[in-house]
Design a protein around this nucleic acid. Structure first.
Length: 463
RNA sequence: GGCGACGUGGCCAAGUGGUAAGGCAGGGGUCUGCAAAACCCCGAUCACGGGUUCGAAUCCCGUCGUCGCCUCCA
């Protein structure tokens, strides 16, 4: 069975075939580090982390590159505003982002290139494009001539003529076509600058990704990803630059995630309607955000609000319910129904994920397994049977990047004391001192400990 | 104005030709001293209007609505 991936370039789901057997070269556009990252950035990162994990699960070796744009107008502007060095500012936010990646349980990329560390490659590429006649220099700027590129607009499905009629383009008289974009920008005094054949300057935005791809992955790659707001002009321009230079098809599959929406609008810095990753993680676990992402198609807009966050939180709780141990003293064998469900779940999970990473469908299958496990527990299945099924659940949730094992929030030191309280309370209950028993239960709940009175005694867990 | 995506039960959301997964919320029940959890049962004909087909949520056309891109943006 093949994996099918929706390709923005062809607007179809296509069977996934790699350039080299069992090896995937994947490039994902990372953030411009000029401010705190928001949950929309996290969504994109999570989407591609899930894709990567699944490809690895299916036996591929993934070479995963994510860049940091650490030089650009906004960084310079922001640095001037704060009165700090622009490199310093970029460094600060880059480190913060790296920390978030860890907190979000994202598998580390193979390489994290930065624009400022790829200047030589960028200059070489611009030079190559000038030599081939695809780019031209004006006053220390270098522009890509879109009219030289026959199939410009292919990714975003736009015609050059349509774009030129757009009234939003500021016409720069020095450009041959209004749609020409900068490969290299001459620096103004006080701006970060690198020497180049065209004088001191810095790279344009689009060229860095092309150069990094060439440098770290080669002329042709399997997957190129990013948010769908990057389709035009960023990815369109990347294709133009890279293919004009190499003469070969650049990325095989263009994969784009939908936008996170806050109150019906795309979350973005310019709109100011954002929740930073830091803010989110101070109130919720990373799994909650991941669950939110998993519960819908990665290509669709994702509704982000208190209600959907709450749903994700409770869905996670349900998933975790299956991980609870067998009843005290139970020793039943593996029920046939559970055995059957395990097979159905594994198969259903793979089928769903093979279909353009249908995580919501895959989750549905996991919940079927959750029900079967809980059913088995209720019916007295023993630890061995239960653990076999739980192992599968853990294996599959791990592919999605969820961490079902709840961290013991109170720490292990607290456990003996909780045990003691439970013991005392059991005495109280035997003496039918309900008011006191309930008080202990309520107070422990306030401290984050949930007591559950079962048939064979009381169990407790961290909330 | 151009390009693209989408509109499925109260909410979130799978499903792209054969009469609609799953989660959350809600109602009823089992269990419980009560509760919680878990388990069992209950709910939609798929924005609207046409068309194609033996048959459509699923294909085509139109209408309405929402969102994204067209300038930096994950």
């Amino acid at each position: 069975m093949a994996i099918y991936i929706y390709n923005t370039l062809t607007r179809k789901k296509e069977p996934f075939e790699t350039l080299q057997p069992n090896q995937v070269r994947m490039y994902v556009c990372g953030p411009t580090v000029y401010d705190k990252a928001h949950v929309g950035h996290a969504m994109s990162v999570l989407v591609f982390d899930i894709i990567r994990r699944y490809l690895e699960y299916r036996g591929y070796e993934v070479r995963h590159v994510m860049n940091y744009t650490d030089v650009d107008d906004k960084i310079i502007q922001r640095a001037n505003l704060e009165g700090v060095d622009s490199m310093e500012l970029a460094e600060r936010y880059m480190q913060e982002f790296a920390r978030h990646l860890q907190e979000l349980n994202v598998r580390p990329a193979t390489v994290y290139p930065r624009a400022t560390q790829e200047i030589d490659q960028i200059i070489a590429m611009v030079q190559g494009l000038v030599e081939k006649g695809y780019a031209y220099e004006v006053d220390g700027d270098v522009y890509f001539a879109v009219e030289k590129d026959d199939d410009y607009g292919r990714l975003s499905g736009r015609q050059l003529e349509d774009m030129q009629s757009g009234f939003r383009i500021n016409v720069d008289e020095r450009k041959r076509s209004p749609m020409d974009f900068a490969l290299w920008k001459a620096s103004k005094p006080g701006e970060p600058a690198w020497d180049s054949p065209w004088g001191p300057g810095r790279p344009g935005w689009h060229i860095e990704c092309s150069a990094m791809n060439l440098h770290h992955l080669g002329e042709q790659i399997d997957i190129h990803g990013g948010g769908n707001d990057l389709i035009f002009p960023h990815h369109e321009n990347e294709i133009a630059q890279t293919e004009s230079l190499t003469g070969k098809p650049f990325a095989r599959y263009w994969v784009h995630n939908g936008m996170l929406q806050l109150s019906g609008e795309k979350m973005s810095k310019s709109l100011g309607n954002l929740v930073t990753i830091e803010e989110f993680l101070s109130e919720h676990s990373a799994d909650v955000l991941r669950m939110l992402v998993l519960n819908s198609s990665y290509r669709s807009p994702l509704k982000f609000n208190e209600e959907t966050i709450g749903h994700a939180e409770r869905a996670l709780e349900r998933l975790r319910s299956a991980m609870r141990p067998a009843q005290v003293g139970a020793d039943g064998e593996m029920p046939a129904a559970l055995q059957q469900q395990m097979e159905a779940t594994r198969q259903g999970f793979v089928e769903a994920m093979d279909d353009d990473f249908n995580t919501a469908g895959a989750l549905g299958h996991l919940f079927d397994l959750v029900r079967a496990i809980n059913q088995a527990r209720d019916e007295g299945a023993g630890p061995q049977a239960l653990e076999t099924a739980q192992k599968l659940l853990r294996e599959l949730t791990d592919v999605l990047g969820l961490r079902l094992d709840e961290e013991a929030r109170g720490g292990d030191e607290a456990a003996p004391f909780v045990d003691l309280l439970v013991e005392v309370r059991t005495e109280l209950r035997q003496q039918k001192l309900w008011a006191l028993s309930d008080l202990i239960r309520d107070r422990l709940l306030e401290l984050g400990v949930v007591l559950e009175d079962g048939k064979d005694g009381t169990t407790w867990r961290w909330k």
